Amino acid sequence: MQHLEWIRVDALDMAVRIWHPGARRTLVAWHGLARHGGDFAELAHRLGPEWRVLAPDTPGRGLSSWSPRPERDYTYARYAEVARALLDHFALARVAWLGTSMGGLLGLRLAAEPATASRIERLVLNDIGPEMAPDGLAELGDYFSRSHQFTSFRELEAELRHHYAGFGIENDDSWRRLALESARRLPDGRWSFHYDPQISAQFVHDTPRDLWRDWATLTCPLMVIRGAHSPLLAATTLARMAEIQPQLITLEAAGCGHAPFLDRDDQVTAIADFLACHTPQRRDL
C-alpha cells in the first residue's frame, strides 16, 4: 500500500488502501466476506504502475469502522451505498471492478442496477457467481457465526492456514504476512481476527435477490476466475454462466479452492490481459 484515504459514510469511516495513486487507469478491488483490502497487495504490485488499485476495507473489517447496527450496515444493500460513496469520492464515472467472493457479488449488483450499471466498465468475479453451492455456503455461514479466539499468535496463524488453504498460497512468508495483517489482540491478551464478529449478520438480515436475472442483464465485459477445487462455485454453475453470457472469459486456478489469492503469474497475467482488452475474446486457461 502506498497511500490510505478515508471515506465517511454516515457514521462509518471506510479505509481505502491505494497502490500507484498517480496511475492513469483505476481498478477497484473488493475483498471477500471476512478479509480486507490488503489482500490485493501482490496483485497491485504485479499489475504494475500503470494501474491505480483502490482496495477498500468494507465496514466491519480491517481498518474501517465497526457498525453499532450490524443488521443494517452488514448487508449488500448497505455495501452498495458504501461502494457508490467510493465511486463518488474518487470521481469514477466508469471503472474496472474486481471482486473476490462477497466483493464480486457486490460488483455484480452494481453492474446490474440501472443507477450504477454504466459506472462498471468491466467486471472480474473471483470464485463467485449467481449460484453458490449450498454446502459451501452453509459452511461459510457456520464458520463466521462462531467466535474465534486464540491463546497465541501461532494458534491464530495455524487456523488461518487451515481455513484459507483454498487461497493457494505457496510460501511461509506469505502466510506469516497474511496472519500479521489479519490479527488483533483482545483486552485479555488473547488473539482474534481483524473483523467484527457481527459481520455474519448478513446471513440473517440480507434480502434475497435473483442473481441469475442480474447476471443475464449485464452488458459490460466479464471474466470469472474459479478455484479448481472451489466448494462454492461449481463447474456446472460456471458453464451456465457462460451459456448466458457467451463472451465470458474464464480462468480455472489450479491448486486453489475458495478463493484464489491472485498472487500467481498466470492469474495476474490473465487479469491484466482482460483489463487491457477492448474487445475481449473467450479465453479458457
Rank of each mutant, 00 (worst) to 15 (best):
V268P: 08
A85H: 11
L110Q: 07
H45N: 10
A55W: 05
F153N: 02
H45Y: 12
Y79Q: 04
H31M: 13
W97S: 13
L123V: 07
W30E: 14
T237N: 01
T279M: 15
Q245F: 08
E5N: 14
D135H: 06
P246F: 04
P114G: 03
P231Y: 08
T207K: 15
V95D: 06
L180V: 12
D266W: 12
P68M: 08
R185C: 06
A272N: 12
T58V: 13
H229R: 13
T100W: 12
W191Y: 08
A179I: 02
E159K: 09
R78A: 08
H205W: 15
P208S: 11
L160T: 01
L108D: 11
E243F: 07
A253I: 07
A80C: 06
T100N: 10
A242H: 10
S118N: 03
S192G: 05
Q202S: 10
L98Y: 14
P59D: 05
R94G: 05
R25P: 07
D266V: 12
D13P: 08
A34W: 07
L233I: 04
S192F: 00
L108P: 15
R161Q: 02
R52A: 13
C220W: 03
G104V: 14
T269S: 13
A34H: 11
T75P: 09
H162D: 10
D206K: 09
Q202Y: 09
I120G: 02
A11D: 14
G99M: 07
E5C: 14
A158P: 00
L186D: 02
T250H: 08
S101G: 13
Y195S: 00
L222Q: 06
P197Y: 10
D142A: 15
A138H: 07
L92E: 06
E81H: 07
L238V: 00
R283Y: 15
